[in-house]
Design a binder for these strands. Structure first.
Length: 641
RNA sequence: GCCAGCGUAGCUCAAUUGGCAGAGCAACUCAUUCGUAAUGAGUAGGUUGAGGGUUCGAGUCCCUCCGCUGGCUCCA
């Protein structure tokens, strides 16, 4: 019989091929407790798997990060088992995978699941954990597997089995519960004690809204109680940083949902932040060779028919009518920029032409998807369109990637890049799409930018590279985007004159860097929990005179700071200093300047930071110099720290 | 849009089984002139998201609509 050779902690072991992992662990392990599985050459295997290849083995104990894959998966089965016990056999199972920080399972239940059912299900789950059921695995040929699922009335499972290409499929069994599953799983239900069910929601079967809606229960689970509590506490803390709470409280924005859902309104403080963000983006665009333009908000629908929006984007557009003519409120800025390109004859010497606009766009979004500033119906994009020759694509895309990464660096944001390919609903032929997609792919590979591929997620006119940033709960939001487009130049018959005096077709690169300024601001609020870096803080300095007799001197300081271009306020109300400090701190004002008799005497100010640090007395000129440095260099921390 | 939950003063939250809508903070007035996270007293603030129904009586029970939250779908 064939043997396999395993290396474990520098020692060699031999086993007959196809030995069960459970047996291997018995031999390898002497003392370790709570072993949940192994990694063989980095692949996760549970107790029920067999060893089919030689290689290096690691034991995975419950506290190993990789253990979560095992016990969360098992918990989704435990949850399904509990649901079946409570609601009976008419429950049909959908899918039940692990996710970041937890797991879920989708159920088809005639009477539905309500929030109040969760404690009941959780209780039954704890019973199953207590029963400490052994988790077993078996394989069946597909036709027998289908027969088994038919007996159990599990229609959705049959659908899945039919699509599995392998000859055999695997099942996992614990007590009376059997589920089609690839694994891996914990060795028994007794090992997975620290969990909590979080919410119920609807989810279409296979994510398609033409399919029936199933009930999805989300849960979270960790290796020990401390980690579970820590995560639950994190969720609580995250709520406090939610931009939808913080933003209005800090006077940054609000949304009047009765009048205009998804259309944020910006009072002075929000506008101050907005202006800084725009000024910075403007500066960067200039540095990277873009020129700023402006185009109308409302244009004749025939423009949108020509661009392809009418055929592929109509559902997301707002329309208005006057004098028997239909106009569209722009959902994108590209057609406007195309008009600018077409307004003169372009020579190959003029290319690339890089047009840039802070364009306000309106897009109809279904009511259920709106989310504070992160998902709105009206927003400003720092949008640009580069018109260039095909041989210039690479340079231009690299230029934009650099611009985006320079921009994000200042905020300290990490991003994830994705390459989105041709969607179902698209313009143009597949050959053009392939050309465009490969062009983008080549650039990304050349500059060594890591990315995931998002199949079918491209824009209707071309493939794109998106930059995603996380919010406070770890949800990712698409911000920057680079879209390569061979099709709109075609539809608008854009041309340039080559050196041979012939006409050629340019290529368009659509991009947004922040993406939507609204969305970017929302993410900023959450990431800094409202305590912005000095350069974007709406109020940068607040004067806090101790008594009325200090107000006049304080106002001379306000004047000095304002003259230096620093956004300054004074709190000259008749309140105690402690009260004023508390308020300024809750407003997250970066610098509080306290002025009393001592400071007036010394011709100085006492500086306090919003984190509570007392910097002591400083001369105003020296303070201004330091603040200017902090602002100009866009530092994220105080120069006094 | 779909599934589930929620909607009381500007904000945070109370209101036994259906039985007189209330508190803190904020606002306003007055007093207080105060040193690193809340000075005191007083005043005002509401068609309980909207509309309909059941009832002697509805914030509370039922229906419809609007909005929000978590997901799904869609997307910057």
């Amino acid at each position: 019989m064939e043997n396999v050779e395993l290396i474990f902690e520098d020692k060699r072991y031999e086993f007959p091929k196809s030995t069960k992992v459970e047996e291997v662990i018995k031999v390898l392990n002497t003392k370790r407790k709570k072993i949940i599985g192994i990694a063989l050459n980095g692949n996760l295997l549970d107790f029920t798997n067999t060893i089919e290849e030689s290689g290096e083995v690691e034991l995975i104990t419950l506290d190993d990060d990789r253990a979560a894959k095992f016990y969360r998966h098992t918990l989704s089965h435990v949850m399904a088992q509990a649901v079946l016990r409570i609601f009976g056999d008419r429950v049909k199972l959908g899918i039940g995978p692990t996710i970041e920080n937890g797991f879920y399972y989708d159920f088809d239940i005639p009477e539905g699941i309500k929030d109040e059912d969760l404690p009941k299900i959780e209780q039954e789950m704890r019973k199953i954990v207590k029963e400490n059921l052994k988790v077993e695995r078996f394989e069946l040929p597909k036709n027998e597997a289908i027969k088994l699922m038919k007996e159990k009335g599990q229609d959705y499972k049959i659908e899945i089995i039919e699509e599995i290409p392998d000859e055999k499929v695997s099942f996992y069994k614990q007590g009376e519960f059997i589920d089609l599953c690839r694994g891996p799983h914990a060795p028994s239900t007794g090992l997975v004690k620290h969990f909590k069910l979080l919410s119920v929601s609807g989810a279409y079967w296979r994510g398609d809204e033409r399919n029936p809606m199933l009930y999805r229960i989300y849960g979270t689970a960790f290796a020990n109680k401390e980690k579970l509590d820590e995560y639950l506490k994190f969720l609580e803390e995250a709520k406090k940083r939610d931009h939808r709470k913080l933003g209005p409280r800090l006077g940054l924005f609000f949304i009047n949902t009765e009048v205009a859902s998804g259309m944020p309104i910006f009072p002075p403080k929000g506008m101050a932040v907005f202006n800084e963000l725009m000024a910075f983006s403007r500066e960067m665009h200039k540095k990277y060779g873009f020129v700023e333009v402006m185009t109308p908000m409302i244009m004749n629908q025939k423009l949108w028919k020509q661009s392809g929006h009418w055929d592929h984007y109509k559902e997301n557009m707002y329309f208005t009518e006057k004098e028997n003519t239909t106009y569209a409120v722009k959902p994108m800025n590209c057609p406007g920029h195309i008009l600018i390109y077409k307004s003169s004859t372009v020579s190959y010497r003029d290319l690339p032409i890089r047009l840039f606009e802070f364009g306000r766009v309106h897009r109809y979004e279904r009511s259920g998807v709106l989310h504070g500033l992160l998902r709105v119906r009206s927003f400003i994009q720092d949008d640009s369109h580069t018109f260039c020759r095909e041989d210039q694509i690479e340079d231009e895309v690299v230029r934009i990637v650099n611009l985006i990464s320079d921009l994000y660096k200042v905020f300290g944001f990490e991003y994830r890049a994705t390459l989105s390919t041709m969607p179902e609903d698209h313009m143009g032929d597949e050959k053009t799409w392939e050309k465009a997609t490969n062009a983008l792919k080549n650039v990304l590979d050349d500059i060594n930018l890591q990315y995931d591929v998002a199949e079918g997620e491209g824009a209707f006119y071309g493939p794109k590279v998106d930059f995603h940033i996380k919010d406070v709960l770890g949800r990712e939001w698409q911000c920057g985007t680079i879209q390569l487009d061979f099709l709109m130049p075609e539809r608008f018959e854009l041309t340039y004159v080559g050196s041979d005096n012939q006409e050629y077709r340019p290529v368009m690169i659509h991009t947004a860097k922040y993406g939507s300024l609204e969305r970017f601001l929302g993410i900023l609020i959450e990431n800094f929990s409202g305590a912005f870096p000095l350069w974007i803080a709406p109020v940068q300095v607040k004067l806090l005179p101790i008594a009325d007799r200090h107000v006049e001197y304080s106002k001379t300081i306000v004047k000095k700071l304002e003259d230096a271009g620093i956004r300054t306020e004074i709190d000259d109300r008749q309140r105690k200093t402690g009260y004023k400090i508390r308020e300024a701190q809750l407003e997250k004002v970066p610098y509080m300047l306290i002025v009393g008799d001592r400071e007036m005497e010394d011709k100085k100010v006492a500086v306090r930071l919003r984190n509570g640090k007392d910097i002591g007395e400083i001369a105003v000129d020296e303070l201004i110099e330091n603040l200017k440095k902090e602002i100009n260099e866009k530092l994220r921390n105080s120069v006094f720290e």
